[in-house]
Design a protein around this nucleic acid. Structure first.
Length: 820
RNA sequence: GCCGAAGUGGUGGAAUGGCAGACACGAUCGCCUCAAAAGCGAUUGGGGGUGACUCCGUGUGGGUUCGAAUCCCACCUUCGGCACCA
């Protein structure tokens, strides 16, 4: 090879990304480069990322962002010698896909298949991600949802799937009920409609049974602190006491939950939630009209109105009385909507002297206010004007007078416990997971109702209960799924007696489909079990999961719950599905989340087509810290496109090396160290910056480099680029004359000896202000640096006539002379 | 109200106790071109000075330290979560 390849080749250096992508996609496919050998279990790395749901909009920039980062991580781990399994699939059941089908008027069975194909071939297949499609899942296919139904049956057998009547959230637009987690500020998570409360009989998963496990399991996880805090918040553990107030006539008792048992002597009335089952019993005839009226008004309120804080307290007196278990006094029983049926026991003891809400209510309705806690002098308040909610000394509390209130919490509970009227109690904010949906596009809940045998689970060997293809899949709004009018579906036989019976016609929540999909991926070839025991033992739990913050109290919480249950039932050896979780930020445009209504949606395909997949990926990762929200800038994409173009040009002109004795190659080794630690921390933007600096360094140092040095520098640059820009790296590796494939190469390791700097820049400060920079051989002593500093014309004026009191010395970095 | 994160050039961001603004975008000027695009090169926090230089500067005010964007306290602003949760 001679050196005559000159400037002409630079002009040709522009590359055609599409031609290159096409070529390498074919080669990768044909050589099975991304098919993981799941039987090789040494150094396994399960690299999971959230799978998309097929919808009208197609793949958006957020997906491309998630996948670029997660794929870069997978490729990097692979080059480090891990056997990386990186599957992908489709969350194809659910309201999104169904609403899309309703909009275009095509049956979701047909439409979803079409959409999935488009996603996979036209969009996802071109991003350059190393997905192992041979293990793809599609949650809407019978071979998948058969096992979603199986999961339901395991829950059922364990007593964790129950049918019960409860106040539930109903979305008037999507015409279905929703889980608590799917209601955001009183609105439907999907369509933003205001949710209303309805009393309905529905299937629930008893996630509340696992509240404590879900809470304590968080401690050992390598998850962002923020996500743990959100889950803890959501679970909402609250420690206190449950106390009993007998009805005055002794006919029944009211349980109340309180975190302030120390204030029980000040409980001057009791409040029941309007829907509380004892309301009818305690209401006297003369009050029944008012009570009924109040209950009616409450039931018509929307969730959002009940949640708003600044409205005035309302309520009604039942005419009934209970007995304060501490004082023995008769106290009136009221109902009010500031007490929620679904939290605690649905009833409270009201202590207006020491609770702001009770205080407000008592003032409005003229109920007595008693002080039972004496605040420390500096917090003294007039209890008639304002509740005192802090700690203090017990007063007007019988034998407990004089005791610090914190101590009295336990003492009073113990005393009442001895009398059978109290106990320590932990309450959680978490509610049971409502999984019924009155929609069509989901897995039918595998239950049969028999007049003789009642509720009967479908035997496992009869699964799947197939979702029938129907003409009219429109949601009905009647509180029943469209399947309720499909006779051929719901008419069946009782599995126990063979007599005529009907099927459950609701389908299950989409979040149930996705709560276990990571268990399915490694075992897709087994059609007789949801997940193979050995495969699961070898490949799970997931080593790295990349996802969005919006799923913390939805998908991530549900997945943890399902995993814990399957563990307790003996199906899994581990209790937590995702060892390491990382949350990517959101891609914004004009400072806001992209949405059709704002009209600020960036189409990923356009950018990919214009600049190529590599430039698109590299730009997404270069925008800013991966875990932060980042603003998409149309013009900034060109910056990385230029960078990649320069690397092509550098490779194509590699015959133009220097003739001198060789260059200082330390920059290469420093870059390896830098990029390695940045990629470990998912700091893609700074790794790319380091590669840009290295490329700039090659440009300026190549005139000094030998041929071998230039070749080595370029090869290392391409190797480190491989996880980020996979097509270009493959092409450049090929142009550098190296053998297929760059993605099978080992990640470079820096030569320790080359990391030590020959020269160091020592900053000389006088009183903390920089006065001089000295470039000296590394390891120059403090004495020598001090002598040089004193001689410096820039430093000397500041030392004239003053005493150096102190010198701070940081070797090879800094000398600070403190004078005066 | 409670809990948490963040505030740095015209813009995205870098630096997590030691040279503030790496790397980019944008802008200005230049080279190349008949011209443009692309590409390449230079300059680019603010004030002052012909200049070597110098002063100011990381939301605001205080503190710790030889030294603070970084640590501590208070406040302001923005964002996120929880909230009539007893």
């Amino acid at each position: 090879m001679a050196q005559q390849v000159g400037e002409a080749s630079r002009a040709d250096a522009r590359y055609d990304p599409h031609e290159i992508e096409r070529r390498w996609i074919a080669r990768w496919e044909e050589s099975g480069l991304y098919r993981t050998d799941l039987s090789a279990v040494d150094r396994k790395y399960y690299n999971l990322m959230e799978f998309p749901y097929p919808s009208a909009e197609g793949l958006h920039v957020g997906h491309a962002y998630t996948y670029s980062g997660a794929d870069t991580n997978g490729r990097y781990k692979r080059m480090q010698g891990y056997n990386v399994f990186q599957p992908m699939g489709f969350d194809a059941f659910g309201i999104h896909s169904e609403n899309y089908a309703l909009k275009v008027g095509i049956n979701p069975m047909t439409l979803t298949q079409r959409t999935v194909t488009r996603y996979r071939n036209e969009q996802m297949g071109r991003l350059g991600c190393m997905w192992d499609w041979s293990h793809a899942v599609n949650t809407s296919q019978p071979d998948y949802y058969r096992w979603t139904q199986w999961l339901f049956l395991q829950m059922y057998k364990a007593g964790l799937a129950v049918r019960k009547s409860a106040p539930v959230n109903w979305c008037p637009k999507d015409l279905t009920v929703l889980a608590n987690e799917q209601v955001i500020d009183g609105r439907c998570e999907r369509c933003d409609s205001e949710v209303v409360q309805r009393e309905m009989t529905q299937w629930f998963f008893r996630i509340t049974e696992y509240a404590e496990h879900l809470l304590s399991g968080l401690d050992g996880l390598d998850w962002p602190e923020m996500s743990k805090r959100l889950q803890r918040n959501w679970i909402g553990k609250s420690e206190g006491s449950q106390l009993t107030f007998d009805l005055a006539d002794g006919s029944d008792r009211i349980s109340v939950f309180t975190t302030r048992p120390d204030t029980v002597y000040g409980a001057t009335y009791v409040v029941l939630a309007p829907e509380h089952p004892l309301v009818e019993k305690v209401t006297v005839a003369s009050q029944s009209v008012q009570v009924e009226e109040y209950r009616k008004v409450t039931s018509l309120k929307k969730e959002i109105e009940r949640l708003s804080l600044d409205k005035e307290k309302t309520g009604a007196f039942t005419g009934g009385y209970a007995v304060n278990p501490a004082t023995g006094e008769r106290v009136p029983i009221w109902i009010a909507d500031y007490v929620l049926l679904t939290y605690g026991t649905g009833a409270i003891m009201a202590v207006p002297g020491h609770d702001e809400r009770d205080h407000e209510f008592a003032r409005k309705f003229g109920l007595p206010i008693t002080q039972v806690i004496e605040p420390p002098a500096e917090f003294a308040v007039d209890i008639r004007d304002e509740a005192y909610t802090g700690a203090g000394t017990m007063v007007t509390s019988g034998q407990f007078d004089g005791m610090p209130s914190e101590e009295a919490k336990r003492a009073i509970t113990e005393k009442l416990q001895a009398e059978g009227k109290g106990e320590q109690k932990v309450t959680y904010r978490l509610r049971d997971w409502l999984i019924s949906r009155q929609r069509y596009w989901g897995p039918p809940i595998p239950i049969v109702y028999c007049p003789e045998h009642g509720e009967v689970p479908v035997p496992e060997e009869q699964l799947p209960v197939l979702l029938p293809e129907v003409e009219n899949f429109r949601p009905t709004g009647t509180g029943k799924s469209p399947l309720a009018s499909v006779e051929s579906f719901y008419k069946t036989e009782c599995p126990v007696c063979g007599g005529p019976a009907v099927r459950e016609t609701d389908v299950s929540d989409t979040f149930l489909d996705s709560s276990w999909y990571y268990l399915r991926y490694p075992s897709t070839e087994y059609d007789d079990r949801p997940f193979d025991a050995e495969r699961t033992r070898n490949w799970l739990p997931v080593d790295s999961y990349m996802g969005g913050k919006e799923h913390i109290v939805l998908h991530h919480l549900y997945s943890r719950f399902v995993t814990k249950v399957l563990h307790d039932l003996g199906h899994l050896a581990f209790e937590e599905p995702f060892t390491r979780l990382r949350l990517h930020g959101m891609v914004t445009k004009d400072g806001a989340k992209m949405s059709k209504s704002r009209g600020n949606v960036v189409n990923p395909d356009e950018f990919r087509q214009q600049y190529g997949a590599d430039a698109f990926r590299t730009y997404l990762l270069f925008m800013g810290p991966y875990e932060d929200d980042n603003e998409f800038s149309v013009s900034a994409v060109q910056g990385v496109a230029r960078f990649l173009g320069r690397v092509y040009s550098q490779v194509d002109t590699r015959e133009e090396y220097g003739s001198g004795p060789g260059a200082d190659m330390r920059t290469l080794h420093r870059t390896i160290t830098r990029v390695t630690s940045e990629l470990d921390a998912l700091r893609y933007h700074t790794s790319i910056a380091a590669l840009m600096e290295m490329s700039n360094w090659i440009s300026s140092a190549r005139a000094q480099m030998t041929q071998a040095q230039l070749q080595s520098a370029l090869e290392h640059l391409v190797l480190m680029l491989a996880p980020i820009a996979p097509y270009s790296a493959e092409e450049l590796w090929h142009r550098l004359g190296r053998e297929y494939s760059v993605h099978l190469q080992a990640w470079p390791v820096a030569d320790e000896a080359m990391l030590a700097e020959a020269m160091a820049t020592v900053v000389v400060q006088v009183n903390g202000r920089v006065r001089e920079r000295l470039t000296l051989p590394a390891g120059t002593s403090e004495e020598d640096v001090t002598a040089l500093a004193r001689e410096s014309a820039k430093v000397r004026p500041y030392l004239d006539g003053v005493q150096v009191r102190k010198a701070v010395w940081v070797p090879d970095k800094l000398l600070n002379l403190v004078v005066g």
